[in-house]
Design a protein around this nucleic acid. Structure first.
Lengths: 185, 185
DNA sequence: ACAGCCATGTAACTCGTTACATGATTAC
DNA sequence: GTAATCATGTAACGAGTTACATGGCTGT
């Protein structure tokens, strides 16, 4: 049975396996923003809801609605079929090469068509943004401590977080190097 | 006058500034594949043609059709208005943070839901793919030599190429580090 | 009282892809 | 002659976004 869902659907399934209790779409968005967004486009709220609807339809997640005062709140949990689908996807579908839309490199490539000061400013800002992203991720990483050993729940997230921390540092280094060469002449 | 075109349109405009002669859509695709694709999604042929049509409509590129034997071949060149639009876009529109869809990190994040051997295999393959991408880019980089000094035509492309070479090396290093930690336990 | 967060969705739209279709030229 | 490459497009579709709409709950 081919599932053929977009990667984002499996990303959401994966996020649902990170906790025990069912979560609302809103909470899932927050979970995505705090973990996923460093390596993957964090989906818009509207997409989370429509994706959850599709996953529910296919029986990969189970929705439970409850009355919370005057409003109806729906929480979602991954089902056994969902876990199986996720597992199958991970085993059978090649990961593929990461897709990058590096706006900074794109502009640097066409730097001859811009004001030199503009290019320098852009790179300086990028260095700062990398530092900020790194600080955000460091917060997340710190929250994993104590449960990040082999076999523990946050083992894999900690691997990815450390990857990301290095990545942001490297990016800042690359930008600084380009800045040095721009200032040379 | 707001132009409000997608970044890919400006990327194509930028590619058109890299050479002197008008190029066909087909040649533009090859130019994109050899430079852009390392930092930006290389657009599909069909998108190149439709984007060129829109740019022509707006007067940012000029199309010249010629009879080449039995078939009509259309070549495109950037216009003065196109250069101005590109310059304005570079000056006024913030670059924004790069968008990443890192399928390898995404899967590593959910590694607990996969077979450990599968995760290891994925990372080993990624290391190889990074090496292959780096080798491809090295070819491109070598082609820039001699014209890559400050003020020369390939100065900015060479900055980006060196950035990319380092990037692929870093990625392979990150993957190897994750592999080491996976093998530890 | 009012701001800000929690929570859920719909509608319109754009970007970009794959599949399809066509046909000329060039190299073996 | 036939395969690969050059060259140009159309059509259908899917992913994902922004804008819009609604309304309850919570803290000050």
């Amino acid at each position: 049975m081919r599932q053929d869902l977009p990667a984002t659907a499996y990303a959401l399934l994966g996020l649902l396996t990170l906790g025990e209790e069912p979560v609302t779409g809103y909470e899932l968005k927050q979970r995505a923003d705090s973990t996923l967004r460093f390596y993957w486009v964090s989906p818009a709220m509207s997409q989370i809801y429509s994706e959850l609807a599709r996953l529910t339809e296919r029986g990969l997640v189970a929705a439970t609605s409850e009355q919370d005062g005057g409003r109806e709140v729906t929480s979602y949990a991954i089902t056994a079929a969902g876990r199986e689908a996720l597992h199958t996807w991970m085993a059978d579908t090649p990961a593929g090469f990461p897709v990058l839309k590096h706006s900074v490199c794109l502009r640097l490539l066409m730097g001859h068509a811009a004001d030199p000061e503009g290019t320098v400013r852009m790179l300086e800002e990028y260095v700062e943004e990398c530092a900020a992203a790194r600080a955000d991720l460091q917060q997340v990483r710190d929250g994993l401590r104590g449960n990040d050993g082999p076999g523990q729940p946050f083992f894999h997230p900690s691997l990815v977080a450390d990857w990301g921390l290095d990545y942001f540092e490297d990016e800042a280094r690359h930008a600084r190097r380009a800045l040095d060469r721009l200032r040379e002449d």
